[in-house]
Design a protein around this nucleic acid. Structure first.
Length: 409
DNA sequence: TCTGGGGTCCTAGGACCC
DNA sequence: TCTGGGGTCCTAGGACCC
Protein backbone atom coordinates (compact mmCIF):
# COMPACT_ATOMS: atom_id res chain seq x y z
CA UNK A 1 0.00 0.00 0.00
CA UNK A 2 2.88 2.21 0.84
CA UNK A 3 4.38 3.73 -2.28
CA UNK A 4 0.98 3.93 -3.84
CA UNK A 5 -0.28 6.04 -0.98
CA UNK A 6 2.60 8.38 -0.99
CA UNK A 7 2.47 9.25 -4.64
CA UNK A 8 -1.26 9.70 -4.38
CA UNK A 9 -0.85 12.18 -1.57
CA UNK A 10 1.92 13.94 -3.43
CA UNK A 11 -0.27 14.46 -6.44
CA UNK A 12 -3.68 14.77 -4.93
CA UNK A 13 -4.03 16.92 -1.86
CA UNK A 14 -7.86 17.09 -1.97
CA UNK A 15 -9.83 16.01 1.10
CA UNK A 16 -11.87 12.83 0.74
CA UNK A 17 -15.22 12.98 -0.94
CA UNK A 18 -14.30 15.99 -3.01
CA UNK A 19 -14.72 15.30 -6.69
CA UNK A 20 -11.91 16.26 -8.96
CA UNK A 21 -12.50 17.50 -12.50
CA UNK A 22 -12.10 14.70 -14.96
CA UNK A 23 -8.97 15.97 -16.64
CA UNK A 24 -6.27 13.57 -17.77
CA UNK A 25 -3.18 13.79 -15.57
CA UNK A 26 -0.04 15.46 -16.85
CA UNK A 27 3.08 13.37 -16.94
CA UNK A 28 6.05 15.20 -15.44
CA UNK A 29 8.15 15.39 -18.59
CA UNK A 30 5.47 16.65 -20.91
CA UNK A 31 5.96 20.09 -22.45
CA UNK A 32 3.30 22.52 -21.35
CA UNK A 33 2.53 23.76 -24.85
CA UNK A 34 1.34 20.37 -26.19
CA UNK A 35 -2.14 19.36 -25.10
CA UNK A 36 -1.68 16.33 -22.84
CA UNK A 37 -2.75 13.02 -24.31
CA UNK A 38 -4.58 10.63 -22.07
CA UNK A 39 -2.01 8.33 -20.53
CA UNK A 40 -1.81 4.76 -21.73
CA UNK A 41 -0.13 2.38 -19.33
CA UNK A 42 0.45 -1.35 -19.75
CA UNK A 43 1.08 -3.95 -17.11
CA UNK A 44 2.79 -7.10 -18.36
CA UNK A 45 2.89 -10.15 -16.13
CA UNK A 46 4.58 -13.43 -17.01
CA UNK A 47 2.24 -16.39 -16.55
CA UNK A 48 3.36 -18.85 -13.84
CA UNK A 49 6.86 -17.60 -14.54
CA UNK A 50 9.10 -19.94 -12.50
CA UNK A 51 7.07 -23.01 -13.46
CA UNK A 52 6.99 -22.00 -17.13
CA UNK A 53 10.76 -21.55 -17.20
CA UNK A 54 11.03 -25.00 -15.61
CA UNK A 55 8.88 -26.46 -18.39
CA UNK A 56 11.17 -24.97 -21.02
CA UNK A 57 13.87 -27.20 -19.62
CA UNK A 58 11.64 -30.23 -19.03
CA UNK A 59 9.09 -30.03 -21.86
CA UNK A 60 7.83 -33.55 -21.18
CA UNK A 61 6.16 -32.16 -18.03
CA UNK A 62 3.87 -29.88 -20.03
CA UNK A 63 0.23 -30.43 -19.13
CA UNK A 64 1.06 -31.95 -15.74
CA UNK A 65 0.70 -30.47 -12.27
CA UNK A 66 4.14 -29.08 -11.44
CA UNK A 67 5.24 -26.91 -8.54
CA UNK A 68 8.45 -25.04 -7.88
CA UNK A 69 9.70 -25.27 -4.33
CA UNK A 70 12.77 -24.78 -2.21
CA UNK A 71 13.67 -28.40 -1.98
CA UNK A 72 14.03 -31.12 -4.64
CA UNK A 73 17.17 -32.10 -6.39
CA UNK A 74 17.28 -31.73 -10.16
CA UNK A 75 15.64 -34.63 -12.01
CA UNK A 76 17.93 -37.54 -12.84
CA UNK A 77 17.30 -39.80 -15.86
CA UNK A 78 13.73 -38.64 -16.16
CA UNK A 79 13.00 -39.34 -12.48
CA UNK A 80 11.14 -36.41 -10.99
CA UNK A 81 10.55 -35.68 -7.32
CA UNK A 82 6.94 -35.86 -6.17
CA UNK A 83 5.29 -33.57 -3.70
CA UNK A 84 4.22 -36.49 -1.51
CA UNK A 85 7.86 -37.29 -0.74
CA UNK A 86 8.58 -33.80 0.54
CA UNK A 87 9.63 -33.22 4.14
CA UNK A 88 10.55 -29.76 5.38
CA UNK A 89 9.47 -26.16 5.80
CA UNK A 90 9.50 -24.91 2.24
CA UNK A 91 6.68 -23.12 0.46
CA UNK A 92 5.47 -23.28 -3.13
CA UNK A 93 6.83 -20.36 -5.11
CA UNK A 94 4.89 -21.12 -8.30
CA UNK A 95 2.43 -23.74 -9.48
CA UNK A 96 1.42 -24.59 -13.04
CA UNK A 97 -2.25 -24.01 -13.88
CA UNK A 98 -2.77 -27.78 -13.73
CA UNK A 99 -1.49 -27.77 -10.14
CA UNK A 100 -3.58 -24.71 -9.29
CA UNK A 101 -6.65 -26.64 -10.42
CA UNK A 102 -5.92 -29.00 -7.51
CA UNK A 103 -5.98 -26.12 -5.04
CA UNK A 104 -2.23 -25.53 -4.83
CA UNK A 105 -1.02 -21.95 -4.98
CA UNK A 106 2.13 -19.95 -4.36
CA UNK A 107 3.11 -19.22 -0.74
CA UNK A 108 1.36 -22.41 0.36
CA UNK A 109 3.44 -24.67 2.58
CA UNK A 110 4.79 -27.66 0.67
CA UNK A 111 3.55 -30.08 3.30
CA UNK A 112 0.03 -28.74 2.95
CA UNK A 113 0.29 -28.75 -0.85
CA UNK A 114 1.40 -32.38 -0.70
CA UNK A 115 -1.91 -33.33 0.90
CA UNK A 116 -3.82 -31.64 -1.95
CA UNK A 117 -1.65 -32.83 -4.84
CA UNK A 118 0.61 -35.69 -3.72
CA UNK A 119 1.46 -36.68 -7.29
CA UNK A 120 2.45 -33.19 -8.41
CA UNK A 121 6.03 -32.96 -9.63
CA UNK A 122 8.46 -30.72 -7.75
CA UNK A 123 11.19 -28.83 -9.54
CA UNK A 124 13.92 -27.00 -7.63
CA UNK A 125 14.16 -23.20 -7.84
CA UNK A 126 16.68 -22.03 -10.39
CA UNK A 127 17.19 -18.31 -9.96
CA UNK A 128 19.91 -18.17 -12.55
CA UNK A 129 17.46 -19.37 -15.19
CA UNK A 130 14.72 -16.99 -14.02
CA UNK A 131 17.09 -14.03 -14.15
CA UNK A 132 18.15 -15.06 -17.65
CA UNK A 133 14.60 -15.24 -18.99
CA UNK A 134 13.69 -12.08 -17.09
CA UNK A 135 16.42 -10.18 -18.92
CA UNK A 136 15.33 -11.69 -22.24
CA UNK A 137 11.68 -10.71 -21.97
CA UNK A 138 12.47 -7.20 -20.72
CA UNK A 139 14.94 -6.64 -23.55
CA UNK A 140 12.35 -7.81 -26.08
CA UNK A 141 9.77 -5.38 -24.71
CA UNK A 142 12.32 -2.56 -24.65
CA UNK A 143 12.43 -2.68 -28.45
CA UNK A 144 8.80 -1.55 -28.47
CA UNK A 145 9.19 1.08 -25.74
CA UNK A 146 12.13 1.92 -23.48
CA UNK A 147 9.83 3.37 -20.85
CA UNK A 148 9.74 0.36 -18.55
CA UNK A 149 9.29 0.14 -14.79
CA UNK A 150 10.75 -2.99 -13.29
CA UNK A 151 8.44 -4.56 -10.72
CA UNK A 152 10.46 -7.63 -9.97
CA UNK A 153 11.60 -10.65 -11.89
CA UNK A 154 8.37 -11.37 -13.75
CA UNK A 155 6.42 -8.15 -14.21
CA UNK A 156 6.76 -4.64 -15.59
CA UNK A 157 4.80 -1.49 -16.26
CA UNK A 158 5.15 0.30 -19.59
CA UNK A 159 4.17 3.79 -20.63
CA UNK A 160 2.66 3.57 -24.14
CA UNK A 161 1.30 7.12 -24.21
CA UNK A 162 3.61 8.37 -26.93
CA UNK A 163 3.15 5.40 -29.25
CA UNK A 164 0.69 5.73 -32.11
CA UNK A 165 -0.71 2.22 -32.61
CA UNK A 166 -3.99 1.32 -31.00
CA UNK A 167 -3.91 -0.53 -27.72
CA UNK A 168 -4.99 -3.89 -29.07
CA UNK A 169 -2.22 -3.87 -31.68
CA UNK A 170 0.35 -2.81 -29.07
CA UNK A 171 -0.78 -5.47 -26.64
CA UNK A 172 -0.47 -8.16 -29.31
CA UNK A 173 2.94 -6.87 -30.32
CA UNK A 174 4.16 -7.00 -26.72
CA UNK A 175 2.95 -10.56 -26.25
CA UNK A 176 4.48 -11.66 -29.55
CA UNK A 177 7.81 -10.05 -28.69
CA UNK A 178 7.92 -11.86 -25.34
CA UNK A 179 6.97 -15.19 -26.87
CA UNK A 180 9.47 -14.90 -29.73
CA UNK A 181 12.30 -14.00 -27.36
CA UNK A 182 11.59 -16.56 -24.65
CA UNK A 183 8.99 -19.11 -25.71
CA UNK A 184 6.98 -17.93 -22.70
CA UNK A 185 3.46 -16.64 -22.38
CA UNK A 186 2.43 -13.46 -20.58
CA UNK A 187 -0.71 -11.50 -19.79
CA UNK A 188 -1.11 -7.81 -20.56
CA UNK A 189 -3.48 -5.16 -19.24
CA UNK A 190 -3.74 -1.72 -20.81
CA UNK A 191 -5.57 1.24 -19.29
CA UNK A 192 -5.01 4.91 -18.41
CA UNK A 193 -3.07 4.03 -15.24
CA UNK A 194 -1.02 1.47 -13.34
CA UNK A 195 -3.79 0.59 -10.89
CA UNK A 196 -6.27 -0.47 -13.58
CA UNK A 197 -3.68 -2.09 -15.84
CA UNK A 198 -2.47 -4.26 -12.97
CA UNK A 199 -6.02 -5.45 -12.31
CA UNK A 200 -6.65 -5.86 -16.04
CA UNK A 201 -3.62 -8.07 -16.68
CA UNK A 202 -5.01 -10.52 -14.14
CA UNK A 203 -8.51 -10.68 -15.62
CA UNK A 204 -7.85 -13.16 -18.43
CA UNK A 205 -4.81 -15.16 -17.32
CA UNK A 206 -3.04 -17.03 -18.76
CA UNK A 207 -2.18 -15.55 -22.16
CA UNK A 208 -4.59 -12.65 -21.61
CA UNK A 209 -4.89 -9.24 -23.21
CA UNK A 210 -7.36 -6.92 -21.52
CA UNK A 211 -7.97 -3.30 -22.36
CA UNK A 212 -9.84 -1.10 -19.93
CA UNK A 213 -11.29 1.98 -21.57
CA UNK A 214 -13.91 4.56 -20.73
CA UNK A 215 -17.03 2.93 -19.34
CA UNK A 216 -15.28 -0.31 -18.41
CA UNK A 217 -14.73 0.68 -14.79
CA UNK A 218 -18.28 -0.01 -13.65
CA UNK A 219 -18.73 -3.09 -15.82
CA UNK A 220 -15.39 -4.88 -15.38
CA UNK A 221 -13.69 -3.52 -12.26
CA UNK A 222 -16.46 -2.78 -9.80
CA UNK A 223 -17.76 -6.37 -9.53
CA UNK A 224 -14.31 -7.58 -8.40
CA UNK A 225 -13.42 -8.14 -4.75
CA UNK A 226 -11.63 -5.20 -3.14
CA UNK A 227 -8.65 -7.47 -2.48
CA UNK A 228 -7.86 -7.37 -6.22
CA UNK A 229 -6.54 -3.84 -5.71
CA UNK A 230 -2.77 -3.77 -5.42
CA UNK A 231 -2.20 -2.53 -1.89
CA UNK A 232 -5.34 -3.95 -0.27
CA UNK A 233 -3.91 -6.99 1.50
CA UNK A 234 -5.36 -9.55 3.91
CA UNK A 235 -5.63 -7.17 6.88
CA UNK A 236 -7.35 -4.38 5.01
CA UNK A 237 -9.63 -6.89 3.26
CA UNK A 238 -10.81 -8.28 6.58
CA UNK A 239 -11.35 -4.84 8.00
CA UNK A 240 -13.37 -3.77 4.96
CA UNK A 241 -15.47 -6.91 5.24
CA UNK A 242 -16.46 -6.05 8.79
CA UNK A 243 -17.81 -2.79 7.36
CA UNK A 244 -19.82 -4.72 4.79
CA UNK A 245 -17.46 -3.73 1.96
CA UNK A 246 -16.59 -6.68 -0.26
CA UNK A 247 -16.43 -5.52 -3.88
CA UNK A 248 -14.74 -2.51 -5.42
CA UNK A 249 -18.24 -1.20 -6.14
CA UNK A 250 -19.01 -1.40 -2.41
CA UNK A 251 -15.86 0.59 -1.77
CA UNK A 252 -16.80 3.22 -4.36
CA UNK A 253 -20.18 3.63 -2.68
CA UNK A 254 -18.82 3.67 0.87
CA UNK A 255 -19.36 6.74 3.03
CA UNK A 256 -16.09 8.73 3.22
CA UNK A 257 -16.68 9.37 6.92
CA UNK A 258 -16.96 5.67 7.66
CA UNK A 259 -13.71 4.91 5.83
CA UNK A 260 -11.92 7.78 7.51
CA UNK A 261 -13.12 6.63 10.91
CA UNK A 262 -11.62 3.16 10.42
CA UNK A 263 -8.58 3.82 8.22
CA UNK A 264 -7.54 7.42 8.84
CA UNK A 265 -7.73 10.31 6.42
CA UNK A 266 -4.94 9.35 4.03
CA UNK A 267 -5.91 5.72 3.52
CA UNK A 268 -9.63 6.56 3.29
CA UNK A 269 -8.88 9.02 0.51
CA UNK A 270 -6.73 6.48 -1.27
CA UNK A 271 -9.40 3.76 -0.98
CA UNK A 272 -11.97 6.05 -2.61
CA UNK A 273 -9.54 7.03 -5.34
CA UNK A 274 -8.72 3.45 -6.29
CA UNK A 275 -12.38 2.44 -6.19
CA UNK A 276 -13.04 5.15 -8.77
CA UNK A 277 -10.09 4.04 -10.87
CA UNK A 278 -7.99 7.11 -10.13
CA UNK A 279 -4.20 6.77 -10.02
CA UNK A 280 -1.61 9.34 -11.15
CA UNK A 281 1.57 7.41 -10.35
CA UNK A 282 4.12 7.73 -13.13
CA UNK A 283 6.06 4.87 -14.67
CA UNK A 284 9.47 5.08 -12.97
CA UNK A 285 12.32 3.68 -15.01
CA UNK A 286 15.27 4.10 -12.65
CA UNK A 287 15.70 3.38 -8.96
CA UNK A 288 18.43 2.41 -6.54
CA UNK A 289 18.23 -0.32 -3.90
CA UNK A 290 17.53 0.94 -0.37
CA UNK A 291 18.35 -2.19 1.60
CA UNK A 292 20.09 -5.46 0.93
CA UNK A 293 19.47 -8.43 3.18
CA UNK A 294 20.05 -12.13 3.70
CA UNK A 295 17.93 -14.35 5.86
CA UNK A 296 17.42 -18.03 6.44
CA UNK A 297 14.83 -20.25 8.03
CA UNK A 298 16.45 -23.12 9.91
CA UNK A 299 15.57 -26.73 9.22
CA UNK A 300 14.54 -26.94 12.88
CA UNK A 301 14.06 -24.27 15.53
CA UNK A 302 17.36 -23.49 17.23
CA UNK A 303 18.08 -22.81 20.86
CA UNK A 304 20.21 -19.77 21.62
CA UNK A 305 22.40 -21.70 24.07
CA UNK A 306 22.22 -25.36 23.07
CA UNK A 307 22.69 -24.60 19.37
CA UNK A 308 25.07 -21.74 19.89
CA UNK A 309 27.84 -23.07 17.65
CA UNK A 310 25.50 -23.74 14.74
CA UNK A 311 23.82 -20.34 15.15
CA UNK A 312 27.18 -18.58 15.19
CA UNK A 313 28.22 -20.31 12.02
CA UNK A 314 24.97 -19.45 10.21
CA UNK A 315 25.21 -15.87 11.48
CA UNK A 316 28.71 -15.50 10.09
CA UNK A 317 27.74 -17.00 6.74
CA UNK A 318 24.83 -14.60 6.40
CA UNK A 319 27.20 -11.68 7.00
CA UNK A 320 29.67 -13.03 4.45
CA UNK A 321 26.99 -13.51 1.79
CA UNK A 322 25.61 -10.06 2.51
CA UNK A 323 29.05 -8.54 2.14
CA UNK A 324 29.43 -10.26 -1.24
CA UNK A 325 26.01 -8.97 -2.32
CA UNK A 326 27.03 -5.40 -1.41
CA UNK A 327 30.27 -5.73 -3.34
CA UNK A 328 28.49 -7.13 -6.39
CA UNK A 329 26.10 -4.20 -6.39
CA UNK A 330 28.85 -1.68 -5.72
CA UNK A 331 27.27 -0.23 -2.60
CA UNK A 332 27.97 0.09 1.11
CA UNK A 333 25.66 0.96 3.96
CA UNK A 334 25.80 2.75 7.28
CA UNK A 335 22.94 0.96 9.03
CA UNK A 336 23.24 -2.70 9.93
CA UNK A 337 20.26 -4.62 11.25
CA UNK A 338 19.15 -8.07 12.25
CA UNK A 339 15.85 -9.89 12.10
CA UNK A 340 14.80 -12.80 14.26
CA UNK A 341 11.74 -14.95 14.00
CA UNK A 342 10.92 -16.98 17.09
CA UNK A 343 9.21 -20.36 17.11
CA UNK A 344 5.91 -18.59 17.79
CA UNK A 345 6.44 -16.56 14.60
CA UNK A 346 6.97 -13.31 16.48
CA UNK A 347 9.43 -11.10 14.61
CA UNK A 348 11.96 -8.82 16.28
CA UNK A 349 14.30 -6.40 14.52
CA UNK A 350 17.22 -4.32 15.78
CA UNK A 351 19.16 -1.62 13.94
CA UNK A 352 22.45 0.11 14.48
CA UNK A 353 23.63 3.13 12.53
CA UNK A 354 27.38 3.43 12.34
CA UNK A 355 29.57 6.50 11.95
CA UNK A 356 30.73 5.34 8.54
CA UNK A 357 29.27 2.99 5.91
CA UNK A 358 30.63 -0.56 5.76
CA UNK A 359 30.95 -3.37 3.23
CA UNK A 360 33.20 -6.01 4.73
CA UNK A 361 31.80 -9.08 6.41
CA UNK A 362 33.74 -8.50 9.59
CA UNK A 363 32.33 -5.00 10.17
CA UNK A 364 28.81 -6.20 9.36
CA UNK A 365 29.26 -9.14 11.71
CA UNK A 366 30.47 -6.89 14.52
CA UNK A 367 27.59 -4.41 14.18
CA UNK A 368 25.00 -7.17 13.77
CA UNK A 369 26.44 -8.82 16.88
CA UNK A 370 25.80 -5.59 18.82
CA UNK A 371 22.21 -5.69 17.62
CA UNK A 372 21.84 -9.31 18.66
CA UNK A 373 22.93 -8.48 22.20
CA UNK A 374 19.91 -6.20 22.58
CA UNK A 375 17.41 -9.03 22.10
CA UNK A 376 16.18 -11.30 24.88
CA UNK A 377 16.49 -14.81 23.52
CA UNK A 378 13.98 -16.68 25.63
CA UNK A 379 12.41 -18.71 22.84
CA UNK A 380 13.76 -20.97 20.15
CA UNK A 381 14.65 -19.27 16.89
CA UNK A 382 13.14 -20.13 13.55
CA UNK A 383 14.82 -17.53 11.36
CA UNK A 384 17.83 -15.27 11.41
CA UNK A 385 18.45 -12.40 9.01
CA UNK A 386 20.99 -9.63 8.53
CA UNK A 387 20.51 -6.49 6.49
CA UNK A 388 22.33 -3.34 5.50
CA UNK A 389 20.53 -0.09 4.70
CA UNK A 390 21.29 3.60 4.19
CA UNK A 391 23.07 2.44 1.07
CA UNK A 392 25.36 4.57 -1.03
CA UNK A 393 27.45 3.78 -4.10
CA UNK A 394 31.09 2.99 -3.57
CA UNK A 395 32.42 5.84 -5.66
CA UNK A 396 35.34 5.17 -7.97
CA UNK A 397 38.35 7.29 -6.89
CA UNK A 398 38.10 9.69 -9.83
CA UNK A 399 34.35 9.69 -10.02
CA UNK A 400 32.54 11.75 -7.39
CA UNK A 401 29.25 10.34 -6.20
CA UNK A 402 26.26 12.00 -7.76
CA UNK A 403 22.83 11.84 -6.17
CA UNK A 404 20.52 9.38 -7.87
CA UNK A 405 18.03 10.98 -10.18
CA UNK A 406 14.69 9.28 -10.64
CA UNK A 407 13.79 9.08 -14.27
CA UNK A 408 10.14 9.42 -15.11
CA UNK A 409 8.39 8.81 -18.39
C1' DT B 1 4.30 -31.66 9.96
C1' DC B 2 1.16 -25.11 8.46
C1' DT B 3 3.52 -20.66 7.10
C1' DG B 4 10.46 -18.76 2.23
C1' DG B 5 13.34 -14.92 0.93
C1' DG B 6 14.06 -10.37 -0.71
C1' DG B 7 12.23 -6.12 -0.98
C1' DT B 8 9.27 -1.21 -0.37
C1' DC B 9 6.91 2.17 2.25
C1' DC B 10 4.42 4.02 6.39
C1' DT B 11 3.78 5.07 11.32
C1' DA B 12 5.10 6.60 15.64
C1' DG B 13 7.90 7.81 19.59
C1' DG B 14 12.11 9.81 21.31
C1' DA B 15 16.43 12.45 20.81
C1' DC B 16 18.29 16.53 19.43
C1' DC B 17 18.67 21.08 17.35
C1' DC B 18 17.06 25.74 16.21
C1' DT C 1 12.40 28.68 34.72
C1' DC C 2 8.66 27.50 31.69
C1' DT C 3 6.45 26.82 27.30
C1' DG C 4 6.17 26.05 22.19
C1' DG C 5 6.74 24.60 17.38
C1' DG C 6 9.25 22.71 13.38
C1' DG C 7 12.51 19.67 11.34
C1' DT C 8 15.52 15.65 11.01
C1' DC C 9 17.43 11.37 12.33
C1' DC C 10 17.16 6.93 14.55
C1' DT C 11 14.74 2.86 15.89
C1' DA C 12 11.02 -0.80 15.98
C1' DG C 13 7.17 -2.71 14.12
C1' DG C 14 3.86 -3.72 10.57
C1' DA C 15 1.35 -4.11 6.00
C1' DC C 16 2.06 -5.39 1.65
C1' DC C 17 4.20 -7.13 -2.77
C1' DC C 18 6.70 -10.48 -5.97
Amino acid sequence: MADFRRSRLDHRPEPPGQQRPDTPPMTPTRVASAPPRERRIAHLDMDAFFASVGLLRYPDLRGQPVVIGGWASPPENGQYARLRDYVGRGVITTATYEARALGVHSAMGMMKAARLAPDAIVLPVDFQAYRHYSRLFKAAVAVITPCIEDRGIDEIYLDLTDLNDDSMALGRALKRAVRDATGLVCSVGISPNKLLSKIASDLDKPDGLTIIGPGDLERRIWPLPASKVNGIGPKATRKLQTLGIVTIADLAAAAPDLLQQHFGLGTAQWLLDVAHGRDDRPVVTESEPKTISRETTFERDLHARHDRALLSQIFLELCEHLSQDLARKGVRGATVGIKLRFDDFRIVTRDLTLDAPVTDAEAIHRAAGQCLKRVTLNRRLRLLGVRVSKLEPIAAPHEPHRPVQLELC
